[in-house]
Design a protein around this nucleic acid. Structure first.
Lengths: 223, 223
DNA sequence: GCCTCCTTGTTTGTAGGACAATAACGCCCT
DNA sequence: AGGGCGTTATTGTCCTACAAACAAGGAGGC
């Protein structure tokens, strides 16, 4: 999952660079990542590069075939279904737990702040800014759950999800729906209502998944 | 998580060796794993060893501190609570999905076989044999769920869980309870009753977690 | 003409040595 | 005794080298 340490090492930088390259599409799905090319491109030796490959493969972003190399994993619609199915239960649980701990330390304040930021995004035109908000909202929920393992697992899944978000949340209607959902989740969490928080979050993720699936390319896009 | 390929490479062997050593207690929690020692002990070079460290750290079995090395992660009672909390929702979901797919291919036959094996273990004295059964039962459930991601995530958690099982399932009463729980889950899955399967599995995991927590050493056992 | 086998080139998997960066430890000085 | 300093151990990274495996293409036989 994510590096377990604070200090930034070369491997972390390589991981970040590859993730970024996949994000912006410079490394396309199915593309082979040849070690020799990447070492030159990134200016690192094969050791750290291979470690980075290993991490990204563990996160499901790359696929490593022995003696064949690493390639950018293509996301099928089935993968997408699986992803949202898992996110639904995990984030639902996170919301329930967060509701139960809303009175601890400054949890309530942080949740309120996130909610306010979220609502303010309603008439914003900055799509990538909204996606950041979206990401931090979900991250906050799992953090407030107080379950570190849950946070780690969901965090790892989120890395997968950005590929979907990029295609999805650009649509204004979907964004409006997403904000409304988030507000419902936040309200339930702030009310300390675990059951309602879980239901709201699960519904949100389920709907987001369906929306994502609807716009997902079905056929083979490229070799 | 687990190696994504069929062919066994050196890294896989190293990972397996370290996991095994942690299992049997040769590498104690908190113990530092010095690269130089391990390369000699395992007869591999630093490259694959470091890759193995990375994988095990991603699975949460090791902890890597920059310029300080890898050490066997100590499991706190909080970690245990977190683990079972996550397992409960994930395996509950897996059971529900498995129930919904019981009529596909040979799912029913495999589930029945696992159930029979499980019950047969009731008067067996072989503790480690039972633990294998236990592991494959849970693995079968997540496999039958048809969600590959779910299987991967739960599989990764299972690697953590064996540390608990070793302390736990030795007790005859706990084992009896465990078998009864499994039978209930299997029955619900075979009946195609998703709701009941989920409830049964969640209850099973929850109880197992409580039992595990009860026998877990609370204070600092060693440096 | 088509299939099979072998050769050749490319890429990965691993080994081993080297060195800088960092942290842990002990020593000396005050 | 306490604090600063050098020593030592260990990690992080680079480099080179080579065996193992795969991929493609040509030689040869049918």
């Amino acid at each position: 999952m994510t590096p377990r340490s604070s200090r930034a090492t070369t491997v972390d930088a390589v991981v970040a660079a590859i993730v970024e390259a996949i994000k912006v599409g410079r490394y396309a799905p199915g593309q082979r990542l040849v070690e020799a090319d990447l070492t030159e491109e990134l200016g690192v030796s094969r050791g750290p590069l291979r470690e980075a490959f290993g991490r990204l493969a563990a996160e499901g972003l790359l696929l490593i075939e022995p003696y064949r190399g690493a390639l950018v994993r293509r996301m099928t619609s089935q993968d997408l279904r699986d992803l949202y199915e898992v996110r639904e239960v995990l984030e639902g649980q996170a919301a329930a737990l967060a509701a139960g701990r809303i009175d601890e330390s400054d949890n309530r304040a942080r949740m309120s702040a996130a909610l306010a930021q979220m609502s303010a995004e309603r008439d914003g035109q900055d799509v990538s800014g909204y996606m950041d908000r979206n990401e931090s909202f979900h991250a906050l929920i799992v953090e407030l759950s107080g379950n570190e393992l849950l946070a780690r697992v969901v965090g790892a899944l989120q890395v997968q999800a950005f590929r979907v978000f990029y295609r999805n949340l650009a649509d204004a209607a979907a964004r409006e729906q997403s904000i409304t959902d988030h507000e419902a989740v936040a309200a339930a969490v702030l009310a300390g209502d675990a059951r309602r928080a879980e239901r709201a979050m699960r519904r949100h993720v389920r709907v987001a998944g369906r929306t994502a699936l609807a716009v997902w390319p079905t056929g083979p896009t490229r070799a």
